[in-house]
Structures are given as structure tokens and as C-alpha cells.
Amino acid sequence: MSILNKFRGKSLWMLHYCTGCGAIEMPPVMTSRYDMERFGIIPMATPRQADILLITGYLAVKTLKRVIRTYEQMHSPKWVVGFGACTVNGGMYWDSYATIKKLELYLPVDLYIAGCMPRPEAIMDAFIELRKGISSGKYEGWKKYIENYDWYKKNQAKLFDVKKWSVNYE
């Protein structure tokens, strides 16, 4: 299985979803100045096709519902990378009623990047580290989600009604 991990490491498809403010540092990484495609990382449009889910910065509770459903739609093996301070311990919005504080309680995060919006080099660092880690089979976040699934669901249930939430519109 480790040979397949090599291939998984070399071609990580990132979900094109700017959940927070850190996504403004993704364009320089995706495009010509830092060019993450050299590592085989390209932005994919739907969760079905993506391997990494980038939580770029803070997460409003409304976005958390969508992110969880998106995460559950992704095909495993899948990984989550937390950008910046807001995913670690609430960041600047530690006292805001609308954002979550510790991403760890709701999603199995494989890697956190320091920075209040990490620099492109820091993001590239994370991709290289993720690549090495996946090739050596170190990052198993998606297994963790399956193993203690109900712990995650209990945390999520504290914030919103996990089963029956839906968009309210006319």
C-alpha cells in the first residue's frame, strides 16, 4: 500500500473553497508567483474530486455546517489543513458569537499553519510537509473521523441541529 501512498502524496487535489480570509493568499500560491502545481496540487471544483480541504482561517457556524457536509462528501483518503490562528484557538474572533474557536472539535485536522493569514511560503511548507507525511503514511485524519464519529457529531450537535438543518429561503 505504501507505493500508492507515494502516488497519493504526489498528486493532491485541493478543494476550491475559500472558507475564510486566508483564501486571499491562495491565488499567489495557485498562480504564477509560487505555483503549487509544481507539486501536482490543482484546485478542483467539487468535493467529490478533491483530496485536501483547506480551512483558510475562521469558520462561521453557518459555514461550518456546509464545511462538514462538504467534508463528508469527499472521498477518503482525505486530509484537512487548518490555516492561521483562527483554526487553532479562535484567533482574533475569540469572543465572537458567530465563529467556532477550535476546529479540532469538529473536523480531524492533519496540519495547522501558524500565521494570521499564513504567507504563501508557509502554505507551500505545509504542502511539502503534507506530501512527505502522506507518502510515509503518517497523516490518517480521515480514519480518526470514522473511528470517533459520534464524538465529532456530539460536538457539532452542540452548535447546530446536525440532522435537520437546511437553507431557509423563500
Partner: peptide
Amino acid sequence: GRCCYCGLCVDICPTGSLWLSRDYRHLSE
């Protein structure tokens, strides 16, 4: 997990002992 790297703590530090270095790398799970 909280710091926003604004540097106000550096500007108010009376002795000037605290400052923000040029290193930003910190990756961990």
C-alpha cells in the same frame, strides 16, 4: 492560536525588549 501579529505589544513595550522576528514558520498537527 490567538495572536494576530499586529505588533502593538512591541510598540507599547517600555523597555523595547519584545519584538517580532522575521521568522514565521510553525507547522504542527
